[in-house]
Design a protein around this nucleic acid. Structure first.
Lengths: 165, 165
DNA sequence: ACGCTTTAGTTGTTCGGCTAAGTATCCGAC
DNA sequence: GTCGGATACTTAGCCGAACAACTAAAGCGT
């Protein structure tokens, strides 16, 4: 039978200043990703609250602000989510008056999404919130460490993308 | 303490142009965390699908398997979520017959949650899924790199915890 | 005893993430 | 042309995440 892997209780010494208890002592990297992601998401949500947006909506608006009107499928690719989530998010943003939808002249299946003028009032706040998020995320980390973290996250991303082929 | 290593390029007023203002590029680390988290979560969800569990439920079961019957508040601390989410997850697990709830003899407010015998049938699969998740997450990364990643994630976690006090 | 605060859980609501299923349209092969 | 597959989008349902508001019980000070 599958025995419990009691091996990775103490992977390495390294700069072990943050020893976290991992359930079943398994998957230290996975658990760490879980925890960081949840904390980061919570922090982002809190910073965005004063803009009235929810986590994820700001990514859609930023894509529209930066690259202009797009089809929903382009937005899906830009924020890396799925079509159903995008459809509902767009519907909510439309109901809030932040985006506008129109039929594509080229493709009758496609819907062109566009940021409204009203949304521009939020742009500064959103950019500010993201800058603050980044600042809080990297507080106390020297540039070398930040570069290292960024490289490692990029590495994880490519590995995970490969794994999820 | 207000070091801003990477000054985000302010979009100014060039609305509609195709200037390279990387979507959500204002926060490279934040954006990277977002992407890695989403990929990792998706991969975890896919691996857990064959166990019939949903992302997050396995953490609760793992805590119960490892540390025995606990109060819900202990589980909340163990998996680092909040009380409402835990209450609902426990209710769903109870309806699935994977956990059992009973009143605490010491504290009439508290609910003692306990894994059922039926849940033990899932344990091997869950442990296996987590091992596979960790394997896929760290494929091609040498131990030194893994330790570095782990240290950096721990660093991010402490920073984010500090920021979100 | 009496209040007040804290703690443990629950319920309601809104959101994103994901799957499954369905519709409408486009496009290439025949 | 017509057909089949691919594409764009929608809808419904389940789940966790987060906030607010509530009940109940415990702890504490007076």
């Amino acid at each position: 039978m599958r025995e419990q892997p009691t091996e990775p209780t103490e992977p390495t010494g390294s700069t072990g200043s943050t020893e976290q208890v991992t359930p079943t002592g398994a998957g230290p990297v996975s658990h760490a990703i879980f925890r960081v992601a949840r904390l980061h998401r919570a922090l982002a949500g809190r910073l965005l609250r004063e803009t009235g947006l929810h986590t994820g909506q700001e990514l859609i608006l930023m894509a529209l602000w930066d690259h202009g009107p797009q089809r929903q499928v382009d937005l899906v690719a830009a924020v890396e989510t799925d079509a159903p989530t995008m459809a509902r998010s767009i519907a909510r943003l439309e109901k809030s008056g932040l985006v506008r939808r129109s039929a594509s002249p080229d493709d009758r299946r496609a819907v062109i999404v566009e940021a409204t003028e009203a949304s521009l009032a939020l742009r500064a706040k959103v950019v500010d919130a993201w800058a603050e998020l980044e600042r809080l995320t990297t507080t106390g980390l020297d540039p070398a460490r930040q570069a290292e973290i960024l490289a490692n996250l990029g590495l994880l991303e490519s590995v995970l993308t490969e794994a999820g082929h």
